[in-house]
Amino acid sequence: MHELTWGMPVIAYLFMAGLGAGALTTSASVLLRGGQSGKYFSIARYGAFIAPIPVALGSALLVFELGSFQAGHWFRFLNLYTVINLSPMSIGTWLLTIFLGISVLYAFTFLSKDACPGDKQDGLRRLAAWVGIPLGIGVAIYTGVLLGAMPARPFWNSPVLAMLFFLSALSTGVASIILVRALLHRKHASAQAEAHYHESGYILSATDTLLIGLELLAIFLFLMYAHLTIGSVREAATVILAGGELSVLFWFWVVVLGLLVPGIIELAILVPSIVYHRAYRSHRVIEILVPVVVLVGGFMLRYVVVIAGQITHPIGL
């Protein structure tokens, strides 16, 4: 077993970059989907403020993890900006840098206290949203491609991994918006505003539930892809299957706690609205607990994947 060359900073980065990219993608989609009416503007605003923070923190963590930084060459990481090549890390660096700039610009357009649809910043905001969506998707996907590009790491070398990370990024991004929104929520004076709050809560929960379902599907495909083959990939996947070193971490923390529990709770709350067209009502406790477990699950997914990829090897010489 080789020592873990990519440790906690990389795991935290993969989670945080995904979260930020997901938050921006969600925010910008909601903003553009709302059209000129500015429906769900508040969701877009929360997402815009969340997005740059985890991405900036995560990227900073990455720099601390670099060998050159630890050896005292503090600014050598700038060498990343002297090159554009087809290394997923090079592509990712540029995506991430542009993403950070755009997401800060996007958040800036929401900064004014009376920011509203159609205000002075509207054109800039919509432009940043149009640019931000592909960038957010790019950042979310590249984290999976980064790991998936190497046959020498059979656990990561799966085409499903990038899709899984992408879905998880969107899901944690939506969850972070739900969480921040619930934490900052004050009961509205008017019944209309309160109803609107719950309506946008419905959109977020429904999106999150859908993403959780797709994530479960991606995990199923990931396991099938690994398990129905022979050789390195199959042997590598045994670490997360029953009896493997990471099986409890994976099945309990990622699948049950991170996906099934929030998915079932959200579904139970959503069903009356979807099937019987009742007005969607959620409890604040649930609106806080569900995204928390989704975020924990998203982090544990990165944790399990990054560790599993490093403790497994190709078989044979």
Binding site: W6, G67, F69, A149, A152
Partner: peptide, 25 residues
């Protein structure tokens, strides 16, 4: 030039690479 990102350490199927703690590369 190397920033010590350790990507190549993972990419090598032969475990031939390591991070030199003195140079950071």
């Amino acid at each position: 030039v190397c920033i010590g990102c350790k990507y190549c350490i993972h990419a090598c199927p032969y475990d031939a690479r390591f991070l030199n703690p003195e140079t950071g590369a």
